[in-house]
Design a protein around this nucleic acid. Structure first.
Lengths: 73, 73
DNA sequence: ACCAAATGTAAAATAAACTTTACTTAATGA
DNA sequence: TCATTAAGTAAAGTTTATTTTACATTTGGT
């Protein structure tokens, strides 16, 4: 079942748009690779809590405004 | 450098006390092993965002009230 | 002191996050 | 149309999270 971990969704792409930020930009600010950001946006895997905290810090909003559990869990 | 990831701290132990909940109890509610809870409390590793979200849901408070980045990041 | 429950810890195994390299496709502007 | 930048994707490799089993230590009650 490649490409559907389910269990969580996020609005990183939207926040990037809102902040006019490229995947690369964000990746650099939180010290991960661009592919890591891409894969998280694509829902390929769940980021660590540290990474999520860093990302929401960059966007200046609460973590739960970006990352949300999906129904079921 | 076993046993110091730095980068994040949490107050799970305190919240458990507040809710009169054992590591086992919490583990069951979020569907992980007791050792996973123990290790996270001990700062041995960083939980996934899904797990952190589940834990804060159990305690009924915001994720950032439990998990906090440490200085440096 | 004894018993039971809760916690701490540790090693080995597995799964999942994350990196690196690299190639492709889409979008934009000169 | 050409060049550039951003985005999508994928495979292989490394690191870190999580499980399982198992045992030691602490704590609380009787």
């Amino acid at each position: 079942m490649l490409f559907d971990i389910g269990s969580m969704k996020n609005t990183i792409k939207i926040e990037r748009a809102r902040h006019n930020m490229t995947q690369q930009d964000l990746a650099e600010k939180v010290s991960v690779s661009r592919q890591t950001i891409n894969s998280i946006e694509a829902g390929k895997y769940v980021p660590s809590t540290v990474l999520s905290l860093k990302i929401s810090k960059v966007f200046g909003i609460g973590l739960e405004e970006i990352f949300e559990l999906e129904e079921g869990d």
